[in-house]
Amino acid sequence: MYFQYESIDHVQLAAPAGSEEKAREFYKGLLGFQELQKPESLQKNGGVWFQAGQIQLHIGIEEPFKAAKKAHPAFRVINLEEMKAYLRTENVAYTEDNKLPGAERFYMNDPFGNRLEFLEWE
C-alpha cells in the first residue's frame, strides 16, 4: 500500500432538525467543547461543530432522525474521576462499565439519545 492513516479528522453524530441550541447547551455548556464556525457552504445544512483539544465533533441534522444507541465515539479523558464528580453535581446520569481491562470508563447519552463513551487508561 502507498498510503497510511494519520488520524481521525472528526466524528459526526446525528441530531433532529432544529436541535442546534440543545447541542450547544450540552456539548459547549456542559462538556466544555468550543463551538467551531462551519464553512459558509455547509451552514445551510444545519447542525453545529465543536472542538476540544484535537477532538472535533460535528452534529449533523438527519431526518428522519435515529439516535446511535450502540455505535459511539469514545473520548479519552485525563482525570475521569473529576469528570464524574462534575457530572454528579450537574445531575447528569451516566453508567459505569468495568468490562474493558486496564481502563476506567462510563457511558452517557447526549440530549438526542446518542451513546457517548468516556474513558481513562490506567
Rank of each mutant, 00 (worst) to 15 (best):
L87H: 10
F50L: 00
E90K: 15
E63I: 05
R88C: 04
K69V: 13
K84Y: 00
D97E: 09
F50P: 01
A52N: 08
E96I: 02
G102Q: 10
A85D: 13
L100I: 15
N79V: 01
E62F: 07
L57D: 05
I78A: 13
R88G: 00
V48L: 15
W49C: 06
I78P: 00
I59Y: 12
A67C: 07
E62S: 10
P64W: 13
A74Y: 03
Y94F: 15
L87N: 08
F50E: 03
A71W: 08
H72E: 03
E104N: 12
A68V: 00
N98D: 15
N79S: 14
P101W: 11
D97R: 10
G102M: 05
G60Y: 09
V92Q: 14
L80K: 01
H58T: 00
F65T: 05
L57T: 00
R76V: 09
I59K: 05
A85W: 03
K69S: 12
E63K: 11
L57M: 01
G60E: 13
A93Q: 13
T95P: 00
A85S: 14
A52E: 04
V92I: 15
R76S: 11
T95Y: 05
T95F: 04
G53W: 01
E82G: 15
V77A: 02
N91Q: 15
P64Q: 04
E96N: 12
M83Q: 12
G53Y: 01
K84H: 04
P73N: 06
I59G: 08
K99Y: 08
P101F: 09
L57G: 01
P64F: 11
H72G: 04
V77Q: 01
E81G: 07
D97Q: 07
I55N: 00
L100S: 12
E104W: 04
K70L: 11
L57K: 00
A67V: 13
L100E: 14
M83Y: 10
G102Y: 10
E63A: 13
V92M: 11
Q51Y: 04
A52F: 10
P73L: 02
R88E: 14
G102W: 10
D97S: 13
Q51K: 15
E63M: 09
L80D: 00
E62R: 14
F75D: 01
F75K: 03
A74G: 11
A93C: 05
D97M: 01
P101A: 07
R88W: 01
M83D: 02
T95I: 08
M83C: 08
T95L: 05
Q56W: 04
I59H: 03
V92R: 06
Q56F: 03
M83K: 11
E82C: 11
A71F: 13
A67R: 15
E90M: 14
K69D: 04
H72R: 02
Q56R: 15
A71E: 05
F75V: 07
G47M: 06
D97I: 06
A68R: 11
N79H: 15
T89E: 05
M83P: 00
L87P: 08
A85Y: 04
E104A: 12
E63C: 02
A68S: 14
G102S: 05
N91L: 11
P64Y: 06
I55H: 00
I55V: 14
H72V: 02
I59A: 01
L87G: 09
L57S: 00
E104L: 01
A85V: 06
K69L: 13
A67N: 14
K70H: 09
K84E: 08
Q56I: 08
F50Q: 03
W49I: 03
V92H: 10
E62H: 09
I78E: 15
F65S: 04
